[in-house]
Design a protein around this nucleic acid. Structure first.
Lengths: 153, 153
DNA sequence: ACATTTTGACTATCTCTGACTATTATTATA
DNA sequence: TATAATAATAGTCAGAGATAGTCAAAATGT
């Protein structure tokens, strides 16, 4: 466990926990802190903070450049979503659905545009072609499906 | 750390919101305010206020010269969407729907997460509760509804 | 032996700067 | 008044500076 990469990994994960899910660093600065070449930071990120492991990485070069790492699933947001998904029964009304969606917005799990899409997809207007007695069933399925897609990214 | 360009960008966007869609500045004055060379203003404008991002820029040199930036209510995207919406018939298969959604992604009209939500909402999996012979009708209605919601924001 | 980690040379991208150019308005002059 | 000179702006572009990315070789670990 004396590997530098592991140490850097732990350091970043610690920051991510502190910052509640996200961290932004400067590659050179971090390399300097750990006395290694900058490209080692890339190595750590590409081996430890992959999408499969639930991280989303963004970066920018040039003056004021940065690397940001976000923890996407597994934890908080993903767990919360999975919890919600299982708590949604087999049927849901348009109103209840909107309440849920507004909650996701409040919890910063989705963006405003994403919320609008979800509401549009689960509105009675969109489901007009579904027999009224089946509508809430279909709505629940659509909502759950959309939420499931959010647990991945 | 925060790039000057970003700071100037935010400043201008703030003004645009205040002034409800348009702002007029003098290049030298603004450069002076942010302690940079005037050409940096051009840099900010050419990288952040492009037509693709929904802005229309006009300017004039000479005494009393100015640069004006207008938020051109991304009607281009909105128009394109409306056009697509009307071109979608009353029925659409999951595959065709995905092709459309991928196109929106390519045209930068929606984000990757938004695309995922849309695909989830229009998948056969989500519409399992809809009688097979009605499924493509419902899918078309849902897709159109989601797209409509994108035209306003 | 094979896999993983570390390193560094080279590349790519973004930002900032300044010298030079272009355009428009104003003032002076014929 | 028409024209020329001057002042006041904005535009362009290439180079310098500041970061981050890539990839393969060397080192190290198992």
């Amino acid at each position: 466990m004396a590997r530098l990469s592991d140490i850097i990994e732990d350091f970043l994960k610690g920051l991510i926990i502190e910052e509640e899910g996200t961290v932004e660093i400067q590659r050179n600065e971090l390399a300097n802190k750990f006395n290694c070449v900058p490209s080692q930071i890339n190595y750590v990120i590409s081996t430890r903070f992959t999408a499969e492991k639930g991280y989303y990485v963004e970066s920018r070069r040039g003056g004021g450049g940065y690397i940001s790492i976000k923890r996407v699933n597994s934890d908080s947001a993903g767990d919360y979503l999975m919890h919600i998904i299982t708590s949604i029964g087999d049927r849901i009304s348009q109103l209840t659905s909107e309440v849920f969606i507004n909650n996701f917005l409040d919890y910063n799990i989705i963006e405003i545009r994403e919320a609008m899409i979800m509401k549009a997809a689960t509105s009675d207007k969109a489901l007009i072609g579904v027999p009224a007695d089946k509508r809430d069933d279909v709505r629940a399925a659509i909502l759950k499906n959309m939420l499931m897609s959010m647990t991945v990214l």
